[in-house]
Design a protein around this nucleic acid. Structure first.
Lengths: 154, 154
DNA sequence: AAGAATTACCCACGATTACCCACAATATAT
DNA sequence: ATATATTGTGGGTAATCGTGGGTAATTCTT
């Protein structure tokens, strides 16, 4: 039984098989609220990784997009960029989803995947890429990072 | 019956068994408020130890994380670093939780664990590491330490 | 419309985990 | 002091999980 619906934490290593399938960690599947109907929406992350949203969370994003007027070209561009790479995926009886080769390329994923719970979504990383990005980001702005710790960690 | 809900004090020595299980001191279990449902959240401490939060306290941290915009890369990095090593654990009928080998490695824990009440959370230490860190920290900044004593101790 | 390629769904199996019971040692109550 | 309950520690077993592959259905191509 899930304690905290649609909330994801923890880090897991899984393998991507020849068909592009990866397991969604069992704990995450249990955290997924039933109204999601075993479905996530996968898309490009803002970092070089794959973002995996519970369906209902993604629908909330879609609702926001619908509010945007299509008259403004910036709006159209934004809607395009957001919608373009997203697709819903239902995990199979073994708990796996299929990743398209486009997304795999984008995240530089090959055989090994690092799956990280990001509270309201999930990220799928190549270990190398993650290390690179993390180093870059934390070095660039360590004072902002400390400030956040101060404000949030109990 | 617990006198003071979700407040932990005292120091206890326990053994970690072959399956990575450690006992949560009975006193701490009794201090855990019922709405936690016998569940803690374990994660990396800021020191080389394991932090153990009552579930409800951790959920407060999660709520804070949810407020952060995912547009800023520092924010994403911070959420990642915070969520990544955290996992909820329910203690078993004997009062034990399971520690992952990742966390055991991080805290340099082997067979013997020192469990310390830290008021609103619990820490699990290797005795050697604790001594080392304590020596380091208090030597480095003894005046700040005295100032705190002055302000807080009655 | 037929063949080729892709996708969806099913089964299998070793490894891991969750859950149960056991028991000695300590603490509490009578 | 003796009996009773609780606590800390160890181990066993059944269920679950992660991963590989196979076959039928669907889609695409020509």
């Amino acid at each position: 039984m899930a304690i905290n619906q649609d909330t994801f934490t923890g880090e897991y290593s899984y393998t991507i098989d020849a068909k592009g399938r990866v397991n969604i960690p069992a704990k995450f599947r249990q955290s997924l609220a039933p109204e999601n109907n075993n479905t996530f929406v996968i898309t490009r992350g803002m970092d070089p990784c794959i973002w995996v949203y519970p369906l209902t969370v993604w629908q909330f994003i879609e609702d926001n997009l619908k509010e945007l007027s299509a008259v403004s070209s910036i709006n159209r561009s934004f809607i395009r960029a957001t919608a373009r790479y997203a697709s819903p995926v239902k995990y199979d009886k073994q708990g796996r989803i299929i990743l398209s080769s486009q997304l795999l390329d984008y995240a530089k994923l090959d055989k090994d995947a690092l799956i990280i719970g990001m509270i309201n979504k999930i990220e799928i990383w190549s270990a190398d890429e993650l290390e690179k990005i993390e180093k870059q980001t934390t070095e660039m702005d360590s004072s902002a990072y400390d400030e956040l710790s101060d404000k949030i960690i109990l």
